[in-house]
Design a protein around this nucleic acid. Structure first.
Length: 298
DNA sequence: TCGAGTCAAGTTCAG
DNA sequence: CTGAACTTGACTCGA
């Protein structure tokens, strides 16, 4: 396979801009909401332009683009209030053939046994769906993890599959599932993805923390197959020390090259994208383009 | 202005 | 059973 895009998430360190400016729920006023969303959308526009200038065509939009939009008490009609801005972003992304994704946080748990938690998770996923439907219905994907285990992984996976069916058709079409670093390894994720006919996202660090049985190459083949005609995307991050997974500032070039080689050697006539998860964000991507890629390409 | 504490939210595990 | 860790960035308030 052939590497197409490298991407990063939410923040641009060169511009010092984020799509995740927020405020306290207790301070939520119409003015605060309007100001903050305006800032986030403008930042996103600036980041897209910067990305285009620097040859980066893949970006994760922050979940807090519209702070509290998925909260039960949120009153404002953000899709109408910012219709113009969203239309402009859609046009801009399309012009540069950008790919976008989003990643709801750890509190969105679709497979929870607690009905209230599931209702909140669904509302959150539908919010992400609306954002991506406005900015990039062509490429938008929502990455989530499978959730908790609750002492019975098989039952928890069944619950995930059942609750998936409660999502809108649009949300179902955008949802993709990523292996996590403690509970659901890539084999578990593949099992769910195959059942639901949705793509699987392989994260190499999470796989190193929480490996699945079997040959990595075979697992990756199955991952690629879940994408059908679409372009698969992979995640790479690296971490400090042994405990937890705080991301390092940059990805170690050897780690990146090793991962890239494995994917390159899969026998598919396809392109693929990689999302870089490192503290230095865009700078980490540029460093890989300027260093690691040159080593690889000779 | 700076640093410490806090934030909408869930799950897991140590004690 | 409870409280802290998980992982993480940004806000807020008090010094």
């Amino acid at each position: 396979m052939k590497l197409r895009y490298l991407g990063y998430a939410c923040i641009n360190m060169s511009l010092e801009k984020t799509t995740n400016k927020t405020f306290r729920l207790s301070n939520l006023t119409e003015e605060k909401y309007l100001d903050t969303v305006r800032y986030n959308l403008k930042s996103l526009e600036d980041i897209i332009r910067w990305n285009a200038e620097h040859g980066i065509y893949f970006f994760r939009i922050g979940s807090e683009l519209i702070p509290f939009a998925s909260h039960a008490d949120f009153l404002y009609d953000w899709t109408t209030d910012f219709k113009k801005e969203f239309a402009a972003l859609h046009k801009l992304g399309k012009k540069h053939k950008m790919r976008f994704s989003m990643h709801p946080g750890q509190y969105s748990v679709l497979n929870s046994p607690d009905e209230k938690v599931v209702v909140n998770a669904i509302r959150d996923i539908e919010y992400h769906t609306e954002v991506l439907d406005l900015i990039s219905p062509e490429t938008g994907r929502i990455v989530i993890h499978a959730g908790g285990v609750y002492g019975d992984k098989k039952a928890a996976m069944k619950r995930f599959i059942k609750n998936f069916s409660k999502l809108s058709k649009k949300a179902q079409g955008m949802l993709i599932l990523e292996n996590d670093d403690r509970s659901y390894n890539i084999a578990d994720v593949l099992e769910i993805c195959t059942r639901l006919k949705i793509p699987a996202v392989f994260d190499i660090l999470h796989h190193d923390c929480n490996p699945a049985e079997g040959d990595l190459k075979e697992l990756l083949k199955m991952v690629v197959e879940t994408w059908g005609e679409d372009i698969p995307k992979f995640h790479i991050s690296s971490r400090k020390g042994e405990k937890g997974c705080p991301h390092t500032d940059y990805i170690e070039p050897e780690y990146f090259i090793r991962f890239k080689k494995i994917i390159d050697n899969l026998h598919f006539d396809k392109e693929y994208d990689i999302m870089i998860e490192a503290k230095m964000k865009d700078k980490a991507v540029l460093k890989i383009i300027n260093n690691a890629m040159k080593v690889v390409n000779g």
